[in-house]
Design a protein around this nucleic acid. Structure first.
Ligand SMILES: O=c1ccn([C@H]2C[C@H](O)[C@@H](COP(=O)(O)OP(=O)(O)OP(=O)(O)O)O2)c(=O)[nH]1
Ligand SMILES: [Mg+2]
Length: 1015
DNA sequence: ACGCAGAATCC
DNA sequence: GGATTC
DNA sequence: GCGT
């Protein structure tokens, strides 16, 4: 490419820069000459959603136009023009944007060096801050110094080498027509490009009629009077079908919204960043970006600019950069120093649990402090009706049997499959829906080698295990009377199994079999069945034991007793309307205990101190209460710790000495960092157990882990060494079970339950779950497919299939499970921000997440983008453009998830990135979130976290009758009692523009980002 | 006996 | 609509 | 698993 060509490109570039976003896209597309088949699920989806939209006036666009343009590898000038005009007309025009671009810089950069940049990206396009620092950072904490990085030690295949070397090209399944070097890094394998999106769609509505679909889409595009467009997304009215409505932020300016014709652009947008074929001139964009950024910076900072491509050409005042274009006021954070470069030490990755055939290390320890952040429990959001819950015992038995493989690992640490050969029919008396107890027991049976028979059949079943009384048992068996049970089938109580389990760890199979036989009579379920099975095998131990049901205490025996202690079962699946707190249009009317009343219940102001420096908006009577409670708690820290439990605010004043830490909301009081916890050993054990539960499938385990996390959090702040069960029991979040465990740890220094839960399958599942995109379900699926190591998965053992994101997750397993020093996050962000601003100087670009909370290490980089619509323009469609540019300069390397509708003001992106100019820099996770300007406050809260804080705040909002999400605080939201996921009433917005107002309304004392740490 | 945050994207 | 992630 |  000669300089003349470059020159031309630059000129065009300048022109382009003044174009509306849509046109810019076309431009970019042309530049990249990417032939994109117009396919993609989105289309059809959009088609539907838009199509169903009422106000579809649409239309004066040229049918097929977009489609063509999409298909065309290269658009002709006319295409562009027509398209532009088309867009404009439909878009009610968008005053083009005269970016404050500096005058055109004509100097053509040294093509040569630039190209080099492209291939290897040796030079930093921009030198921000001191790259050295970033480098140091990256290097220092790199591979070795991580005690916990053993991650992959045993899984060679995926060792870090692979993820690191920029030139490895092992599993290049991902296309990438273009070749090596240049394309290599730049191109960023974008698995997504091959995503099923296309196929999905194809298979769908669109079938082959892509064009048609497209057209329809276009035609049906909502021509909403801009002014009525909701600024804030109503939040998918319905999770399922309901599609979200666009949140065009048009209010302020009808003319600027570039979104009028979403359908027309979406296809390209969608794929845009995912080019699969960067093909020709990968350097173009790179050059453009650099150039543009340079100009932007120059214009912004009046800095001199040297030819790009040379070493550090541009020096930026990063501080300024950060402080500008930020919607955050407190940008000063500075505590960078603490971000020692060797921070990333303990990644919390599940990988910490090596499953060495031999030494199974504990995965727990990692939870201690920092490492924990990244994966706090991830409660599957909605699980109301999880599979098991809605299954009948029979169905569950069947389910278990079909997945027996995963439950019955060949080599399990505990015991032997003593039930091998036993064909068991189990009933707990719950016939409609399998209770947790039933499910757990069934699982145990299978786990220990037993075969569960879903339907009673005397010809198959060898043993009947029941804990129910006669009637339900008979019902389950489908019999009329006990006598109908053949004599050769022993009918025993569950305790027979648990007895066997406890013995299985210390006896051989033969001995056990005998013992089990002996046990039969002892555990006979019913007097009448006492002799069953005796004769056949053993000479009846004599019926001497008269007939009284064997009073076997099934609970107390064995460490797994917990299971047996659960109440029998919950049946019914009816819909009991949850009357608890009525959702009223006015949250204020919800009377909830001593809640910080919602906006309109001033009467609650009673018992609180007059203090309160902060005047709460409407009232928020209890703000002070919380402040006080907080203070109180802090104080009592010195004195004694006390307990929770409710009490009205009034009491607080009265019952002064009693530090009933007013069962405050987790989000209300800052938690001091606890360095040396006197109960650390206990915490470690519980945390280990929690991790195990977290990795297992099934909701019970999930919520159990959730409960442990709360108990652990409480323990962490408990000031003194716990010495008794009673003492533990008093701590909030610590119930009977946990207290008993604590007692056990206290006495024996160990927790047997851990050994019991820590089976090979769980440990392996933990490793698998370290792969991005792999959760417990898939992990177990793979386990049952025979996979035991990451290598197995990579090889596709058991014909396991990886989704594109998972493939990336596997490839960069170590990198992704590592945390970067805050320094590095900053370095990357500072490379990104200028590029974003070069696209639109008015953007607000902020780094959120753990970085904003000033954490020393960051699991990923979270970037929030928004833009004030005051000048009539919005940031709609900016994300795809930014992504493309970041890909071009080698910052973004892989995509994991793309925005559903890139033209929306609200968009989400997930991918991997790296410092392009640092050799062998690690891949880092990066997320982008764009939001309508008006929801910035709520978005800030959300994206700043931490996750526990968010959940706590949302829970509080909920109890107060509100609903809080990333778009705002709403009142009047009503959810379907039968499935909380479904909203029956969208509710109305109460606040969303500033963090402060939301805190205030919810009565949550203001807390700086770094104070919002709960995890 | 029931909730435990709420939503986006992938498949 | 489930699974996964933020 | 815990709290209500
Ligand atoms: O389940 C979640 C996970 C995250 N978030 C919010 C809070 C969090 O701060 C932000 C960014 O998520 P991320 O996973 O990046 O967490 P982080 O707080 O930034 O920690 P890390 O350093 O691991 O990235 O999104 C939630 O609300 N719920
Ligand atoms: Mg983060």
């Amino acid at each position: 490419m000669d300089s003349a060509t470059l020159q031309q490109l630059f000129e065009e570039q300048d022109e382009i820069m003044a174009l509306p976003d849509e046109e810019m896209l076309t431009y970019i597309q042309r530049i990249r000459m990417i032939p994109r088949p117009p396919r993609g699920k989105r289309w059809s989806d959009l088609h539907h959603e838009e199509g169903s939209h009422p106000s579809t006036a649409a239309s004066d666009h040229i049918p097929g136009q977009t489609c063509d343009s999409v298909k065309e590898p290269i658009l002709s000038k006319t295409d562009i023009d027509s398209r532009s005009s088309f867009n404009r007309s439909v878009l009610s025009s968008s005053a083009s944007s005269p970016m404050p671009m500096a005058s055109r810089v004509e100097e053509s950069p040294p093509a040569g060096s630039e190209l080099e940049d492209v291939s290897g990206l040796p030079n930093a396009p921009i030198v921000v801050d001191s790259p050295e620092r970033a480098l140091e950072a990256t290097d220092s904490y790199r591979p070795d110094d991580e005690p916990g990085s053993p991650t992959m030690s045993l899984q060679k295949p995926i060792s870090r080498k692979r993820g690191l070397s920029p030139d490895h090209s092992p599993n290049q399944k991902r296309r990438r027509s273009s070749d090596h070097s240049a394309a290599e890094t730049t191109e960023a394998i974008s698995p997504i490009s091959t995503f099923p999106r296309s196929s999905r769609t194809l298979g769908k509505t669109n079938g082959g009629a892509v064009d048609q679909g497209l057209q329809l889409q276009s035609e049906s595009t909502p021509q909403l009077p801009v002014l009525q467009r909701p600024q804030i997304k109503p939040v998918k009215a319905q999770p399922k079908k309901g599609k979200k409505t666009k949140s065009s932020e048009v209010q302020n300016d009808p003319c600027s919204s570039p979104i009028e014709e979403p359908s027309a652009i979406i296809p390209q947008l969608r794929k845009e960043p995912l080019n699969r074929t960067i093909a020709s001139e990968p350097s173009n964009l790179l050059l453009e970006v650099k150039e543009r950024v340079a100009r932007y910076k120059a214009s912004k900072h009046h800095l001199k600019t040297v030819p790009l491509g040379q070493r550090s050409t541009i020096v930026i005042d990063d501080v300024q950069l950060v402080e500008h274009n930020s919607i955050i006021s407190d940008v000063s954070d500075s505590d960078m120093s603490s971000a020692s470069s060797r921070a990333s030490s303990r990644a919390s990755s599940p990988a910490n649990s090596k499953i060495g055939p031999k030494d199974k290390q504990k995965i727990t320890s990692t939870i201690t402090e920092k490492g924990k952040k990244a994966k706090n429990e991830k409660p599957l959001a909605k699980h109301k009706k999880e599979k098991p819950k809605s299954m009948t015992p029979s169905e569950y038995a069947q389910h278990l049997q079909s997945t027996a493989a995963e439950l019955r690992p060949k080599r399990r640490g505990t015991g032997i499959p003593f039930l091998e050969g036993y064909k068991i029919f189990y009933t707990g008396g719950d016939m409609r829906i399998a209770s947790e107890t039933t499910r757990k027991r069934m699982e145990l049976i299978v786990r220990h080698g037993g075969t569960l028979i879903p339907q009673y059949d005397p010809k198959i079943v060898t043993h009947i295990v029941t804990d129910a009384t006669v009637p339900p048992t008979l019902h389950a068996l489908g019999l009329k009377k006990l006598e109908d049970i053949p004599d050769h089938i022993p009918t025993v109580k569950w305790s027979w199994v648990t007895a066997g389990i406890s013995r299985s760890t210390r006896m051989s199979k033969p001995d056990l079999d005998e013992k089990l036989q002996d046990d039969l009579w002892q555990h006979a379920a019913f007097a009448l069945r006492m002799e069953a099975g005796m004769k056949t095998t053993k000479s009846a131990p004599s019926k001497s034991r008269s007939k009284e049901k064997s009073v076997v205490i099934e609970d107390e025996d064995s460490h797994i007793s917990e299971f047996t202690q659960e109440p029998p079962a919950q049946i019914q699946g009816g819909f009991n309307v949850n009357l608890t707190h009525n959702h009223d249009q006015n949250p204020a009317e919800v009377a909830v205990g001593n809640l910080p009343s919602p906006p309109s219940s001033p009467e609650l102001q009673i018992g609180k101190t007059a203090s309160s420096s902060k005047v709460t908006l409407g009232h928020d009577p209890l703000a002070e209460f919380y402040d006080q409670a907080k203070a109180e708690r802090i104080e009592e820290k010195h004195q004694f710790y006390s307990e929770p439990e409710s009490e009205s605010d009034i009491e607080i004043e009265i019952a002064a000495p009693v530090k009933k830490q007013a069962r405050g909301w987790t989000c209300d009081s800052k938690e001091a960092q606890v360095k040396d916890c006197p109960n650390q050993d206990i915490i470690d054990k519980l945390a280990e157990l929690m991790e195990l539960h977290k990795a297992k499938l099934g909701d019970e385990d999930h919520w159990r882990a959730f409960a442990y996390s709360k108990a652990i959090r409480a323990l962490r702040h408990y000031p003194k060494r716990i010495s008794t069960y009673e003492e533990a029991r008093k701590i909030k979040g610590v119930g009977d079970k946990t207290a008993r465990k604590i007692a056990e740890i206290l006495e024996t220094g160990d927790l047997r339950r851990i050994g019991y839960e820590k089976t090979e399958d769980v440990q392996i599942a933990q490793v698998f779950q370290g792969i991005y995109g792999v959760g417990r379900s898939i992990a177990y699926k793979w386990y049952s497919s025979g996979c035991r190591s990451l290598e197995d998965i990579r090889k596709g053992k058991g014909s396991v299939k990886l989704s594109p994101p998972q493939e990336i997750g596997l490839r960069f397993y170590d990198d992704i499970n590592d945390r970067m020093p805050r320094n590095e996050a900053r370095a990357i962000f500072e490379l990104i921000k200028p590029i974003a601003l070069s696209l639109d100087p008015k953007l607000s670009v902020d780094i959120m997440g753990s970085y904003r909370r000033r954490k020393a290490t960051c699991g990923d980089i979270d970037i929030l983008i928004t833009r004030s619509p005051e000048d009539g323009r919005t940031h709609a469609g900016i994300l795809p453009r930014l992504l493309r540019e970041l890909h071009a300069v080698g910052i973004l390397t892989e995509d994991l998830a793309l925005p559903e509708d890139p033209t929306d003001l609200e968009a989400i992106y997930r991918g991997l990135c790296r410092l392009p100019d640092v050799p062998n820099s690690k891949r880092r996770r990066i997320d982008f979130l764009t939001v309508p300007f008006t929801s910035r406050g709520a978005a800030l809260i959300y994206y700043t976290g931490d996750d526990i804080f968010n959940r706590a705040m949302r829970l509080k909002a909920n109890v107060m009758g509100y609903s809080l999400n990333q778009r705002g605080l709403f009142a009047g939201v009503i959810r379907d009692p039968r499935d909380r996921r479904v909203k029956m009433e969208a509710g109305h917005l109460v606040a969303s523009e500033t963090e402060e107002e939301i805190f205030k309304i919810l009565g949550v004392p203001w807390q700086e980002p770094h104070e919002r740490v709960r995890g």
